[in-house]
Measured scan of single mutants.
Amino acid sequence: MDVFMKGLSKAKEGVVAAAEKTKQGVAEAAGKTKEGVLYVGSKTKEGVVHGVATVAEKTKEQVTNVGGAVVTGVTAVAQKTVEGAGSIAAATGFVKKDQLGKNEEGAPQEGILEDMPVDPDNEAYEMPSEEGYQDYEPEA
């Protein structure tokens, strides 16, 4: 019985440690998101679009440190934060509304985080759909 109880105690310690790591990862992701939003706020009209992409990228980098179902929630929060940063930029006159959601080359930025393969159960990952990809044929 002692062996059984000791095993359960060790398992509990492992769960607590994993929860603490997840909590730490979420806190880091939130900190990076805040950094990115402050970065966007300090940019001029020309830099705002690039700044919004930076927020998304920093958040995406930190999301990889967070495991399990938390990833889905962090990704949703990050996307809403990026959308909010863009709205703030438009409201303050840093950028025109028609410039939001495009990178410096004018290509749409939507789907940055949505296409990231995420499995809350950590069982399997699927690649994003290939609808947006084109076949590449090298020139002879």
Rank of each mutant, 00 (worst) to 15 (best):
G7K: 10
K21V: 10
Q79D: 03
V82R: 04
L38G: 02
A11L: 14
P120L: 09
A85P: 03
N122M: 10
K102C: 05
T44K: 01
D115N: 07
V118Y: 09
S87A: 12
T72F: 03
G47M: 08
T59G: 04
S129H: 06
A124F: 13
D98R: 09
V40I: 11
G14K: 09
A85V: 11
P138W: 11
T72I: 07
Q62E: 03
V118T: 03
P120Y: 08
G47S: 14
T54S: 08
V55W: 15
V16A: 06
S42R: 09
G67Y: 11
A29V: 08
Q24C: 03
H50L: 13
V95S: 07
G25R: 12
V71G: 02
D2A: 01
G132K: 06
D98V: 03
T44L: 10
A11I: 15
K12L: 14
T33H: 01
D135L: 10
V49P: 02
Q99V: 13
Y39T: 04
V63R: 03
P120V: 05
K32G: 01
A76F: 15
Q109L: 05
S42C: 08
L100I: 07
V49Y: 11
T59S: 05
A17L: 05
E46M: 12
V70C: 04
T44G: 04
K97S: 10
A107Q: 05
A19M: 05
G67K: 05
M5Q: 00
V66F: 11
K80I: 06
M5G: 01
V63A: 04
V26Y: 15
T33S: 07
E105L: 09
T64D: 04
G68S: 04
G68A: 11
A17R: 07
V118K: 09
T54R: 15
S129F: 04
V77L: 14
A89I: 12
E28F: 04
V26L: 08
G86D: 04
E20G: 02
G47C: 07
Q24F: 15
G67T: 13
A53T: 09
V70I: 10
E57T: 06
K23W: 15
V71N: 02
A17D: 02
Y125A: 03
V55F: 14
P138N: 04
Q62T: 09
K6A: 09
Y125T: 09
A27Y: 15
